[in-house]
Amino acid sequence: MSEDKNKQVSRRQFLNYTLTGVGGFMAAGMLAPMVRFAIDPVLQPEAGGDFVSAEIAEEDITTEPQRVTFKVEQVDAWYESTVEKVAWVYKQEDGSIIALDPTCTHLGCIVGWDSNEDHPDHFYCPCHGGLYTKDGVNVPNTPPTAPLSVYEQKIENGILYLGKSIPREEA
């Protein structure tokens, strides 16, 4: 009889156990979202870090700049849209590939390669006559003050993938 009584849980113990248990759940319920918010940036996929296929094979890239287009998802405030981006791709003298972003560093028009008769073998901006040499460096005494940006790029399975556009400082 007395042994049985020892094994029994007293009222005080029972209340202690249940209160600790319930309290623990409540604390966990409150803390979990806080922790989630605190480490939230870690869980987000890196914006713009994704590479997109430019749908051009490595062997099709020559030393002459070629215009390729690729689509990226873009978010402007609440508005999500798919935007078509343009890149000029070619092989440099050392054989490495470079993908130039044709957005003029002056005011944002789209430049074209070899598109003006007076300036062959240059990137030419139709808006204010900005000029860039083949490596994307701005020609002095034209409106742009910085070289064209360069896309991050990698080759996977022989296909060119392009990423973020990285601005360059004046050379």
Partner: peptide, 15 residues
């Protein structure tokens, strides 16, 4: 018209 003008604006944004 929206697509049309958007594209013109995108390519000639600076002018």
């Amino acid at each position: 018209m929206d697509l049309f003008v958007d594209r013109v604006e995108r390519e000639y944004k600076g002018r």
